[in-house]
Every structure is written in C-alpha cells, then in structure tokens.
C-alpha cells in the first residue's frame, strides 16, 4: 500500500475511487489505508504546490543557517521546537555539516525576513550565529519544475511514432 503514498505525494487531489482503480484495489481498502496513514502520522497534510512567482502576491523566502549549541539532555530538539513555533517559519531541518539547523522563513519582503532573523531567531538562547540566504527564484520545488524555460513540453505526435 506504499504506492498510495507515492501517488498522493505526486497528486493529493486523487480521490479514493481513482486510487482504487490505479492500484487495482477496492475503494474501501484505499480509504482504510489512508485513514490509517493519517492516524499514524505518516500522511501529515494535503497541500497544493504553488508557484507564487506567477502571482501578484508579495512574498519573499529565505533559507537561514543556524549554528546552535546543543543543550544537555535535549540536544537540538528544544531550540528547534522554539524556532518552529513562529508562523513565519515554513520548515526546520537538523543538518549534518557546517551548521545545525536549516530554517526556511517566509515573509512579505526581504527586509521583513531580515528583521525577523535579527529580532526573533538570533536572540534565542543557544543560537551562536545565523546566516540568511534569500531564495531568488525556484527552478524546481517538490519534484516539479517551476521555471518555464525548463518546463516539460509534449512534443510528441509529429509522426506515426510507433
């Protein structure tokens, strides 16, 4: 039933009826499996993948590198927990390598984000340093090509093609 997850990851608008046909199962089996995945916290939500650059919305996004000193007993968890409480924070990852937490922050403008980092993230106890990298454009996100220069075009059908 893991195929359900792959299919929903690609297109969460698929209905249980469609999934049932695609996977050769009954609709009931699919519904049951999805309920279980939701209950187990495997499926955490159903979101649309939006290319905000194509809209008029004012929106900026940055990847913030945080170096933090791990706390006794709780390690990085406690600081990560505080960071992710902010609604501005889209995602928080614990990283290997040159820094500890990767934080994706969304705001209206770049200066909003800069202020957020300076006023909210940097002062958190245990945060040693921050480095803010603004995301200038998204070529690909969630496995999907965003940049129109690279978008898939179906150029088939120019011949018998069999």
């Amino acid at each position: 039933m893991e195929r359900i997850l792959e299919l929903l990851q690609n297109d969460c608008a698929l209905t249980p009826a469609q999934l049932a046909v695609l996977l050769g199962k009954t609709e009931e089996e699919i519904k049951k499996a999805i309920r279980q995945y939701e209950k187990d916290g495997v499926i955490k939500g159903y979101q649309a993948l939006i290319n905000w650059e194509r809209t008029d919305a004012q929106r900026a996004q940055a990847l913030i590198e945080l170096r933090v000193s791990p706390q006794k007993d709780t390690g990085f968890d406690e600081i990560a927990g505080r960071v992710m409480n902010f609604p501005e924070v889209q995602s928080v990852y614990l990283m290997s390598g040159g820094y500890d937490l990767a934080v994706v922050v969304t705001g209206k403008t770049m200066s909003d984000i800069a202020m957020f980092v300076a006023r909210r993230l940097a002062p958190i106890g245990g945060v040693l340093s921050t480095a803010t990298h603004f995301i200038l454009t998204k070529y690909k996100d969630g496995g999907v090509t965003f940049n129109s220069d690279y978008e898939e075009i179906d150029e088939r059908g120019s011949n018998l093609g069999d």
Partner: peptide
C-alpha cells in the same frame, strides 16, 4: 491527445 505511440517519459 491519446494518440501517440511513444513513451511520455524522458
């Protein structure tokens, strides 16, 4: 189109 006889995968 559902007419072509070649794969859609790259």
């Amino acid at each position: 189109s559902l007419s072509v006889g070649e794969p859609d995968f790259y």
